[in-house]
Design a binder for these strands. Structure first.
Lengths: 254, 254
DNA sequence: TAGTGGTCTAGACCACCCG
DNA sequence: GGGTGGTCTAGACCACTAA
């Protein structure tokens, strides 16, 4: 996309948003194309359901290569704004399913990132077989050796999150001797075992007596819960529930 | 990346995972490269902190173009596994910050996607100025004309989520006459106004009397809340809180 | 079956930034 | 300053699928 000597329509649109462009310093062609397409969608030039010109046509209009147009459109498609299919062309999604990307950091970084001092303490640690509920969740055998941990994550010496974790010793037997005074179970596992996938869920529960006691809140208070199953090679390696203190929220931008 | 006539090491690794490859039918070069790099990370060939070979070297090893290697590595970087910087090279992240991508669909699609019948009812609709709390959230003036809506989303005639929404009539004046019997407020806004960005947050609250009554649950039960501010052109257009019925969870895979 | 987007290449130039 | 990744191109072939 040449910055000068360009079609009238594009010049106008670029000019309208020049103040924005000046600040964001987006000089890349694919970003300019993406912004321009986004702008046309937002202003209704291409309303929901509209069939966009082909990549080749857009490449001609913007005077850039098809690959560059493709990158821009694929980005918008990844954000849920466009629906692209071979032969069918590219359309503006009727109901743009926005996808929110949440970062799930290590607890230490989450807390230190807020400027607080991180500290963790292991409250309870036992080696045992899984409870029936845990067994069902992880689909492991009844006699599978596991470590059950309860820990507390502190921010500035205030309870921040209560952790209830099961670790599968069949997959990571060395965890039985892991020293968790320096690093947390999560950090140990990240550094000492692979990682291939898992599931995350968020939900909300009323605090039980155990959570209330450890988090220093009333029983029954609504707690935000992050639940995660981590697998390596399709074998469940750990199952963890993180009960955040009341008022915790996770947020992101669209 | 040629499938045959390839270095011994790669052949071996491909062979080890052949059963997986057979099922996933990933024939693209960039996917093969990505899988291979992922595999080397997971098996510790490239442990956390390790500096990877340059794109050019990897392109030579995999016998493909640098652009293809670049795509594979950039994908992994986007997933938080790699840290890439010019001149600095590509490293395996020490603490892989996993990013979970959550889809935030329109309520109708969320419910119909579960095979249930969707129905929505507007419980209350009034035109008024914002409360101080809403004003602070949206940073609008005190005399900004708004519509305050309370609605209930039903799945198979059971309460599914309770919605508390404010719409900024300064930005979308036509909303004042919107007919919300056929489509929901969200759908109306998606189709009748642009969209440029917003913030989403998830948290958890105890059900108040209003939520309990409408969702048919006890007061004090822990509810999962999705809160969203949507903007067009940096002007707040709507602010919505969705209180899901007890037990609701959102989940995703890593 | 024809037309669209998906992928890949070889090469080029450039911006960034570590040493 | 030099080496890395970031971007871009022109062209090619291919996979999918709507008409």
């Amino acid at each position: 996309m040449r910055k000068h000597n360009i079609k009238m329509k594009v010049v106008n649109l670029e000019f309208q948003r020049y103040s924005i462009r000046m600040t964001t310093t987006s000089l890349n062609t694919w970003q300019l194309v993406q912004d321009e397409v986004l702008h046309r969608i937002q202003t209704g030039v291409w309303s929901p359901g509209t069939l966009l010109p082909t990549e080749k046509e857009l490449a001609q209009e913007f005077e850039c290569s098809r690959a560059t147009v493709s990158r821009a459109l694929n980005n918008l498609s990844g954000e849920g704004l466009l629906d692209r299919r071979r032969k069918g062309g590219t359309r503006v999604n009727l109901n743009p399913v926005r996808r929110a990307t949440l970062a799930i950091p290590v607890m230490r970084e989450e807390i230190e990132g807020k400027g607080s001092v991180y500290r963790a303490m292991v409250l309870e640690r036992e080696q045992r077989n899984p409870t029936p509920a845990v067994r069902a969740f992880l689909s492991v055998e009844a006699d599978c050796p596991m470590v059950h941990l309860r820990s507390l994550h502190m921010a500035d010496n205030q309870p921040y999150a209560f952790e209830d974790r099961w670790v599968n010793l069949q997959v990571v037997p060395k965890f039985a001797e892991a020293d968790l005074t320096e690093i947390s179970a999560n950090e140990w596992l990240v550094q000492n075992s692979g990682f291939s996938g898992g599931d995350v869920a968020f939900y909300s529960v009323n605090a039980g007596s155990q959570e209330a006691e450890n988090l220093g809140c009333r029983e029954g208070e609504a707690l935000f819960v992050l639940e995660r199953i981590t697998r390596v090679n399709n074998k469940p390696i750990t199952f963890v529930r993180l009960f955040y203190r009341p008022g915790h929220r996770i947020s992101t931008s669209l």
